[in-house]
């Protein structure tokens, strides 16, 4: 389903065809749930927040402007919901300075070929290490990293979503990746 099709379904919803929204829910439910899951690491809460995004989106569909991508609009609602959640939890937002570029990296062991049992075990451990490391990223970096590398948004789309310059988004995602590498190295 393309962005144009999203717009068609939105129009149909606005004309009173409630069932048209089901296509939108089916299309975005997984990516939204995974976005929340990476951000808050709680399954049930992630599902609740995903549901809330759809309810909010549906109630304010009439405010959606077709000049924008629907996915960007939807994830903006998700991002605002997440910010509200952090505010309620009073989590501190941490900003990091750019990593030193001369820093010597250590290799991250991740086999690419068909894994043996031992390799499968090792891979599982690696996956768990990456999951833990992602969870340790500061919230603002983790969100941009998730949007880019879990939800596969382009830097331009994220910039529109978060009202940030593209350069800032790229820089923060870069910081997130280098910090992630550093955290994995320490693990």
């Amino acid at each position: 389903m393309t962005e144009n099709e999203d717009r068609v379904y939105v129009r149909r919803c606005l004309q009173g065809e409630r069932q048209a929204f089901e296509f939108i829910v089916r299309k975005y439910q997984s990516s939204l749930a995974n976005y929340f899951f990476r951000m808050i690491q709680e399954r049930e809460l992630s599902l609740e927040m995903t549901q809330e995004v759809f309810l909010r989106a549906y109630a304010s569909l009439h405010t959606y402007k077709e000049d924008f991508q629907f996915s960007t609009w939807l994830f903006r609602i998700a991002s605002n919901l997440l910010i509200d959640y952090w505010r309620k939890k009073k989590l501190p937002l941490v900003f990091l300075d750019a990593q030193e570029e001369d820093e010597q990296p250590a290799p991250v062991q991740l086999p690419d070929h068909e894994p043996s049992v031992a390799e499968q075990y090792e891979r599982k451990m690696t996956m768990e290490a990456i999951t833990r490391a992602v969870a340790r990223l500061p919230e603002n970096l983790r969100e941009l990293f998730t949007l880019r590398h879990i939800n596969d948004f382009s830097y331009e789309e994220i910039a529109k979503m978060k009202n940030l310059p593209v350069g800032t988004v790229k820089n923060r995602v870069f910081q997130a990746k280098e910090l992630l590498r550093q955290l994995l190295e320490e693990a």
């Binding site: 439910q29 997984s30 749930a33 995974n34 899951f37 399954r43 992630s46 599902l47 990296p105 250590a106 290799p107 991250v108 062991q109 991740l110 690419d112 891979r123 690696t126 996956m127 990456i130 999951t131 992602v134 590398h149 879990i150 990746k177 992630l180 590498r181 994995l184």
Partner: peptide
């Protein structure tokens, strides 16, 4: 440096997805 970062991104891509 390239292979390390490639491995990192591949690892991130293989992270388990939340099943609904």
């Amino acid at each position: 440096a390239l292979s390390e970062r490639q491995a990192l991104l591949a690892g991130v891509n293989r992270l388990p997805r939340l099943e609904l």
